[in-house]
């Protein structure tokens, strides 16, 4: 499967934000993250508590990919949901579309059933936005001209 870059315009971000806020409100989950299957964080909402979203994204994408690989070994196409139950907080991960997943963090104020039901609905809505974003030609704007000499310098300069 050929993978493509993802360009999220401001209107895409706003639409995803609306979907995630509604999902959080309906499901009672605390945080919702939309994550690229390669491990990149695409969007996040909620977050009463500090969350290392970048690390969680990398680990969740890897866990989801691992379970997908296990599913294939069992003759399944994919396991569409991944659920980790903790003493206080739990994680529910579901497939948004081919290239993204939706991760919800929740606690005892709701149930995995509630999260699962509303995650389906939210996944469909987020998937539609991402599908449109990927199908759209990338706006040239800032990316039209090649990098100049100043922009091509080393990003990190030793001495380290």
């Amino acid at each position: 499967m050929k993978l493509r870059d993802t360009v999220i315009l401001e209107q895409d971000a706003e639409r995803i934000h609306q979907v995630l806020m509604r999902f959080l409100s309906d499901s009672g989950a605390g945080e919702a993250l939309v994550i690229d299957r390669g491990g990149q964080l695409l969007a996040m909402d909620g977050g009463g508590q500090a969350l290392d979203a970048v690390s969680i994204s990398a680990l969740a994408a890897a866990a989801f990919s691992s379970t997908a690989a296990m599913a294939q070994l069992l003759g399944e196409t994919e396991f569409t949901v991944l659920f980790h139950e903790g003493a206080k907080r739990s994680i529910h991960v579901s497939r948004v579309e081919e290239e993204a997943i939706l991760l919800a963090v929740f606690d005892e104020r709701t149930t995995v059933g509630m999260v699962r039901v509303f995650a389906k609905e939210a996944s469909r809505a987020v998937g539609a936005v991402l599908g449109e974003a990927r199908a759209r030609p990338r706006p040239a704007g800032e990316f039209a001209a090649p990098l100049n000499a100043a922009e091509s310098g080393p990003a990190w300069t030793p001495p380290y």
């Binding site: 493509r4 870059d5 993802t6 360009v7 315009l9 895409d12 971000a13 690229d36 695409l42 990316f143």
Partner: peptide, 9 residues
């Protein structure tokens, strides 16, 4: 693949 986010720049 790369992710370009105009909202977060």
């Amino acid at each position: 693949m790369s992710v370009i986010n105009y909202a977060k720049r």
